[in-house]
Write a protein that binds this DNA or RNA. Structure first.
Length: 586
RNA sequence: GCGCCCGUAGCUCAGCUGGAUAGAGCGCAGCCCUCCGGAGGCUGAGGUCAGAGGUUCGAAUCCUCUCGGGCGCGCCA
């Protein structure tokens, strides 16, 4: 419809141009908007306002001219000039009814489109370090990322969802050492647990499992473990030096193969937990990409070689630097440390090279907002690798501050004091959790009130939308109980009897759905879909209160049922995209 | 200090990329089933869109400055 109007306007402008009307050489992008108020019709164009200046005419006069030049179209009932020079289009209701047939015919496909044209898009999200279970902070990225991916798929992109597993590096070493120390405790050693170790209960559980299967085989006297280890912070030392020394000691005392086992058991354990957690949260991946693999198969070295060939690497202070400040970063970055270890950034460069080599048209990284300082250097890396840096989109998700009522919940992964995503799901359920996370614009700081989300009452917005769906199902059950059958054809023949204000409004909202999907997908803004669904549910509830559907007149009854079933279908489609259930009864 | 995000109703937030009288939910006041599910609907009160300049037919939206909040600024990941 929007497109048709656009074409009509374009034709009108061409006509005026042919008549020698001045100032129409440059036609701005024609924007057709849905109006906010019914008295302004269904669609509006501000073209006359935009053109008034170059054409040096009064915008109201220009609008009149354009309207006069508009070709006739059966779907357009009336065109009006209004306000400072808006052109308002009133759509013929008969053409509005078509949407009900369309929704019925297309069913679950209604709203999907092909504007993505099968372009390959990779979406990487969550990618939390596998050093512990996911917490509620990761939940937002998980919900947001999965919905963005699903939306892109819905509008025709070929979407590849990926989780980057940081299974190399110091954090993992700290985890391995933490597990071993807890294991020693199981063996009966008295351990002063390092302040910088992972203190969560899950570490004890892993240690407990190991002890159960191998007994005291890996036990070493604690005195030997602590020999010459610099003091921890509470004892007046440096916690980083303390933990690093403990990691080295763990490696020496266990020996490489055994150390590897502890490391691997911890990794496998936690990664399995994360995978299961996300699956239960309705988040699926095509690929779990290992950082360690990049290290092992020489990809990092290859990536650095490519940078070196481009003249972007140099040596200084014993380290190797990437001259990222030459291409947008605020300073240069180390890629190989003085101790000849790669930095995390080095493997990330390799990872992005790998993404580029796999031929994605678009690469989307979804990160926590605290990583924003990292964006320019990754962009620089892509440019230095010789790729088009516009291929990369980084979406930053702001933190969700957690509250229990008024009280803010403090969180720290190391100390183990945090609410896990699993706990949240158990408390509020998958549907409410997903809905809440995605309800707000991603760049918006969000307060997640556990108390509110836990309350299974009317305060909880997800129920409002689900209730609309359940209500429609209930109406259909009532139909059956009253001994009536739905007559689809009769309903379609009587659509023109849907003349109530609420019915016309619903038609417009239903017709909007494909546009909402498209916008939400292309702008990576799932919250637009949520708001739409709330609008739709609200209009349905209003309609429900104002009019009886199951009336004696079979024509009107079936027409209304067709409308209501169209609402049901769109609610199900929208909720489905959000991976939220559409319950037939609540 | 520099950079990124943000500031809209008592609270939590939308606001369709510059449009018409700034909108929802919760909370508050009042009302609506002999009727398809009251987890609903309707009405009302509540706003200097943080503040000040600027751009123009038109600004919550764009630019500059100020104030306030969050987050970054490692040879950590």
């Amino acid at each position: 419809m929007k497109q048709k109007i656009e074409e009509l306007i374009l034709q009108a402008v061409e006509t005026l141009k042919a008549e020698g009307f001045p100032g129409l050489e440059i036609i701005p992008h024609i924007t057709i908007e849905r109006t906010r108020e019914a008295q302004h019709g269904d669609f509006a164009s501000n073209l006359a306002l935009m053109l008034a200046k170059p054409a040096k005419v009064n915008p109201r006069q220009l609008a009149e001219k354009i309207i006069a030049a508009l070709p006739r179209h059966e779907a357009v009932m009336k065109v009006e000039m209004a306000g400072p020079g808006f052109i308002n289009f009133f759509i013929n209701p008969n053409s509005q009814y078509q949407v009900i047939k369309k929704i019925h015919d297309e069913g679950r496909e209604f709203g999907l489109s092909t504007i993505g044209a099968g372009k390959k898009v990779q979406v990487e999200f969550v990618s939390a370090n596998p050093t512990g279970p996911l917490h509620v902070g990761h939940g937002r990225g998980a919900a947001y990322g999965s919905v963005v991916a699903d939306l892109l798929q819905a509008v025709g992109f070929d979407v590849h969802r990926e989780y980057y597993v940081n299974d190399a590096g110091r954090q993992m070493d700290i985890l391995a050492a933490s597990i071993w120390l807890r294991y020693l405790e199981e063996c009966g050693e008295v351990v002063h647990f390092p302040s910088n170790g992972y203190r969560g209960d899950y570490v004890r559980e892993i240690a407990w499992d190991i002890h159960k299967s191998v007994g005291n085989e890996y036990r070493r006297p604690i005195a030997l473990v602590l020999e010459d280890i610099p003091a921890d912070e509470p004892q007046g030392g440096d916690k980083e030096a303390h933990i690093d020394a403990l990691i080295d000691r763990t490696k020496t005392l266990l020996g490489p193969p055994l150390y590897r086992d502890f490391f691997q058991i911890g990794l496998d354990n936690i990664l399995e937990d994360i995978k299961a957690d996300l699956r239960e949260f309705g988040v699926d991946y095509q690929q779990w990409f290992s950082e360690r693999q990049l290290m092992d198969d020489g990809s990092v070295e290859k990536a650095l070689e490519r940078l070196r060939a481009g003249g972007y690497l140099y040596e200084q202070d014993g380290a190797t630097w990437f001259a990222s400040s030459r291409i947008g970063d605020e300073k240069d970055r180390v890629v190989v440390r003085e101790n000849s270890q790669y930095t995390y950034f080095a493997s990330d460069i390799a990872y992005h090279m790998n993404k580029l080599d796999r031929g994605f048209d678009r690469i989307i990284d979804i990160w926590g907002a605290d990583h924003h300082g990292y964006v320019p250097r990754v962009r620089a890396a892509i440019e230095a690798l010789g790729a088009d840096k516009s291929k990369l989109t980084v979406l930053l998700v702001q933190f969700a501050a957690l509250y229990r009522g008024e009280e803010k919940v403090q969180m720290s992964t190391r100390s183990g004091e945090f609410v896990t995503l699993r706990q949240l799901r158990n408390e509020v359920g998958k549907d409410a959790a997903r809905f809440f996370y995605v309800m707000r614009r991603s760049e918006q700081h969000m307060d997640f009130d556990l108390k509110l989300a836990t309350s299974k009452s009317n305060e909880n917005p997800v129920f409002y939308v689900q209730y609309a769906y359940a209500r429609i199902c209930s109406v259909l059950r009532q139909l059956d109980e009253k001994g009536w059958e739905r007559n689809l054809l009769l309903g379609m023949e009587n659509l023109s009897q849907l003349t109530e204000e609420h019915e016309i409004a619903l038609l417009g909202t239903l017709a909007r759905y494909p546009e909402v999907l498209e916008r939400a997908a292309l702008q990576y803004e799932p919250h637009q879909l949520i708001h739409y669904l709330r609008d739709l549910a609200h209009e349905f509830h209003t309609y429900y209160n104002a009019h009886q559907f199951l009336v004696e007149d079979a024509g009107i009854r079936n027409a209304r049922l067709n409308l209501v079933c169209a609402v049901k279908q769109v609610l199900a489609n929208g909720l489905g995209l959000l991976n939220i259930n559409s319950p037939e009864a609540m």
